[in-house]
Computed example of a mutant assay.
Amino acid sequence: MNFIRRNLLGLAGLAGLSALAAGLGTAQATAQEVTLRLHQFLPAQANVPKHVLDVWADKVEADSDGRIKIQRFPSMQLGGTPPELIDQAIDGVADIVWTVAGYTPGRFPRAEVFELPFMMTNAEATSRAYWELAEKEMFDQDFKDFHVLAVWVHGPGVIHSNNPIRTVGDLNGVKLRAPTRTTNMLFSSLGATPVGMPVPAIPEALSKGVVDGAVIPWEVAGILKVGELVNNHTEFGGASLYTTSFIFAMNKERYESLPDDLKAVIDANSGIEFSAFAGKTQAAYDAPIRKDAVERGNNIIELSEEEVQEWRDASQATLDAWVKELDERGLDGTALLEEARALISKYTEGN
């Protein structure tokens, strides 16, 4: 009997140890493997995915000692269209998305303040201002349904067109792709016919004559081969006719489900510094694409200060209309405009 009892106890002990080992192994595997899906609308080789998003993802993976894996899905590979990206982050179709705030017109009204005519000084300073204002005014309002990783803007917007555009009058009747609600308001008031569409649709629209031109920064014009589709590019000296506000967002529940140490990794690689890095980096890739257009013999139209002033004066109506619209919605457009300008000035002077 003792022999049998001892053997039964031994077998039970071995079984318990095996179960404990299996449980520890499962716990270790769980702790090791957190996979996050990052979805966005540009090809993987475009500047933002390659030099901004991949930098972020690689750093998160390294800082987590491999416990976080970022799966990257460019060019809408998880399905849907660019305007659906923000809802994909909210609904959990993707864990992380990078998108244009203006792809869902009117949904993020406070972010529009940075897209208004001649607001931006440079992308780094304006991106810092965007983050600070977002943290104060947007996180609990416009951005409440997702976890914000970063927000930023691109470099100076450029008009790329079939025919030369130098004066406001040159826009009359021009079918122009514009990226956001505010830029649609602007170009409509200046006499153009704005056509809204996501960035990936631009090359086909230009080649088929759906539009006569597009307003985008130089850096994205490269991956779209815009310099091969049009010959004229209008710049606004040291000013920026417009810029676009971006949102880098994470599903709120997915973020909250992470252990505290992995949340800390995400947090350390997000926020105002990454926003500033993203804006500065995106703008830095304007110059090489501009150089390519020059080397192709394209017509670079550089407006003088006096010529730019005509555009500033003509753009005032858009500023006034936007402020009035937000005031009527109870959002105090006047205060938002003043605060955004003050923050941009603060960070520009600090550069």
Rank of each mutant, 00 (worst) to 15 (best):
S240H: 07
S240A: 15
S240E: 00
S240K: 04
L241G: 04
Y242S: 15
Y242K: 13
T243E: 04
T243Q: 08
T243M: 07
T243V: 13
T244G: 12
T244L: 14
S245V: 13
S245C: 14
S245F: 03
S245M: 13
F246G: 05
F246A: 10
F248L: 04
F248K: 05
F248M: 06
A249K: 09
A249W: 01
A249R: 06
A249E: 11
M250H: 05
N251W: 12
K252E: 07
E253Q: 12
E253S: 14
E253V: 05
R254G: 00
R254H: 01
R254N: 00
R254K: 14
R254C: 00
R254E: 02
Y255I: 00
Y255Q: 00
Y255S: 00
Y255L: 02
Y255V: 00
E256K: 13
E256F: 00
S257T: 08
L258N: 02
L258S: 03
P259R: 04
D260E: 15
D260T: 11
D260M: 04
D261A: 09
D261Y: 09
D261E: 08
L262V: 09
L262E: 06
L262G: 03
L262Q: 07
L262C: 06
L262Y: 04
K263F: 08
K263V: 03
K263A: 11
V265N: 08
V265R: 04
I266S: 09
I266Q: 06
I266C: 12
D267Q: 11
A268G: 10
A268I: 07
A268T: 09
S270P: 12
S270Q: 11
S270G: 12
G271Y: 04
G271A: 13
G271E: 10
